[in-house]
Design a protein around this nucleic acid. Structure first.
Length: 260
DNA sequence: ATGGCCAATATGATTGGA
């Protein structure tokens, strides 16, 4: 079972890159973020032609998440619980029947939160608290659970090229990192850190200032796994090459492979 | 040379991203 995440920064701009990558890598489940279109504008046929089922939670202009799956969806639930007034499309959960029982996978796009000290940052922190509450409820079920997406969190100094330049950034503030550790404390494992202690495992490079060429990246796209899925984790790959394509997303895909 | 980009929108300036 291979589960991927990719912030594509517009599904319509990235359609060719995404379909070529899917055809080559054939992940079973793909969590997408920043699709930046409404549900009816999502290019469904391109993915159905590759054998994927779709669950889309879109929004005009900004945000938007989706899940592609070779497995049939048993249930699809858009929206993160905990705030009925939150109209950002940043979360979608799907449930699947597998040989090892019900598997739940969520695609999430956690708020950026910049600039710090504004309502944008308080929204981020509230969103992280809601995510923790959701995760704790799901973990109580003791069923396979994967939370994958763009967390907009740099977990440690090893996950950024120049930590000093990020100390006041919403992605790296102590409170942000503390909330991320709170998720881990619930029993979720940052999959790549279960298989590697390397630095420079970046998943995002800014479009500006030649950041990719200088490898000025950050690691903010994460696959979090429950204990049972962590036991089955075999490998995690970051597809750095995707950032070198023509008209790339500023994020690259990550695939976690789990024993069937 | 210490700044350099990108996507969506009734669109050519603004907003958001990170």
């Amino acid at each position: 079972m291979r589960i991927a995440t990719w912030n594509v920064n517009s599904i319509r701009q990235r359609l060719d890159h995404l379909t070529a990558w899917l055809a080559e890598r054939q992940p079973d489940i793909v969590c997408l973020q920043e699709i930046k279109c409404q549900d009816d504008a999502f290019p469904r046929q391109a993915f159905e032609a590759l054998g994927y089922n779709l669950a889309v939670h879109g929004q005009k202009t900004f945000n938007g998440v989706a899940i592609l799956s070779k497995l049939k969806f048993d249930e699809v639930t858009p929206g993160l619980p905990g705030d009925d007034g939150d109209d950002h499309a940043r979360f979608i959960e799907a449930a699947f029947s597998t040989s090892s029982g019900v598997l739940r996978v969520a695609s999430l796009y956690l708020p950026n939160g910049n600039p710090a000290g504004t309502e944008k940052y308080s929204y981020k922190i509230k969103w992280m608290n809601r995510l923790s509450h959701y995760a704790s409820e799901r973990l109580k079920l003791e069923e396979p659970l994967i939370l994958a997406g763009d967390y907009n969190v740099i977990p440690t100094p090893a996950d950024v090229h120049n930590p000093a330049a990020w100390v006041n950034d919403a992605l790296f503030l102590p409170q942000t990192r503390e909330k991320f550790r709170a998720l881990e404390s619930l029993g979720l494992t940052d999959a790549i850190r279960a298989v590697s202690d390397d630095d420079k495992l970046y998943t995002f490079w800014d479009y500006q200032a030649g950041a990719f060429q200088k490898d000025h990246g950050i690691r903010i796209d994460h696959v979090l796994a429950c204990p049972r899925m962590t036991d089955r984790l075999q490998a995690v790959e970051i597809f750095r090459k995707a950032r070198a394509l023509e008209k790339p997303s500023d994020h690259v895909p990550v695939i976690a492979t789990f024993e069937d």
